[in-house]
Amino acid sequence: MCGSRFWAAVLPVLLAVCLVPFVPTYAQSAVCERALAAAQDQYREAEYDEALRLAAACLNQEERTADQAISAYRILALIHLKRDELEQARSAVVNLLGIDPTYTTDPVADPPAYVSLVSIVQRDVQGPTEVASSTPESTRPSFFRRTSTWVTMGTVLVGSGVATVVALQSGSGGEQGGGGGTPPPAPEPLPIPPTTP
């Protein structure tokens, strides 16, 4: 009987000691999940301060999953983009990519600014490792980063604008050379059709 009393007293303590570390993890994970859902709702309602607070609360939890951290950093980046705080948005994306370097955006569901930011940050973060070959093509800047591209595009736009202005001015004056003359005469009215017998 003495042995059963001992186990009856010790068993609950052993169970509590063994299970207690798992309860806070689940509880904190559930708190983070609720905070992320609420942050997403607040973001949709343009309550950015509250959404920011909720996402930060999730990130401050010691026990959170990698997916929860990625979702929190995504929400932070979206909020900062809406507020035109590009450095903070970039920092959130850098932290996100620190957790999952292969992270990809959803071009249909995510805003274009967010998709572009993630792409730019991924290129900046992974850039030095990708430039392995030293061929002239790999060191050449991309099409839109070349000065010649922008000079050509500017020349075409200015030239087409000038041509449009000249065409409009020369067409408005008829033979008088484009200077606000009288409008052309109205066309003659159509003849009346003959009546049928």
Rank of each mutant, 00 (worst) to 15 (best):
T182I: 12
Y43R: 07
P191Y: 13
S29P: 10
L117T: 01
S172E: 05
P187N: 05
P191F: 14
S133A: 10
V93C: 03
A56V: 06
A57C: 09
T139W: 15
K82E: 12
F6D: 05
R83E: 14
T135K: 04
D100P: 03
R140Q: 06
L157I: 13
M1W: 09
G178V: 03
S160K: 09
G159N: 11
T104K: 08
G171V: 01
V20H: 11
R146Y: 13
A132D: 09
G173F: 02
L86I: 09
A57Y: 10
V20A: 11
P184I: 01
M1D: 13
T164A: 06
V166A: 08
P185M: 03
A69P: 04
T182F: 10
D124A: 02
P136T: 00
A9H: 09
E175A: 01
P111F: 06
D84S: 12
P183A: 02
P193D: 05
L190C: 13
P128I: 00
S170Q: 05
G180Y: 07
L19F: 15
L96M: 05
L157M: 14
A77P: 07
R90G: 02
V13G: 09
G98D: 15
R146K: 14
D124L: 04
P197R: 07
V17I: 15
R53M: 09
E33W: 12
A186N: 15
V10Y: 08
A56Y: 13
W7D: 03
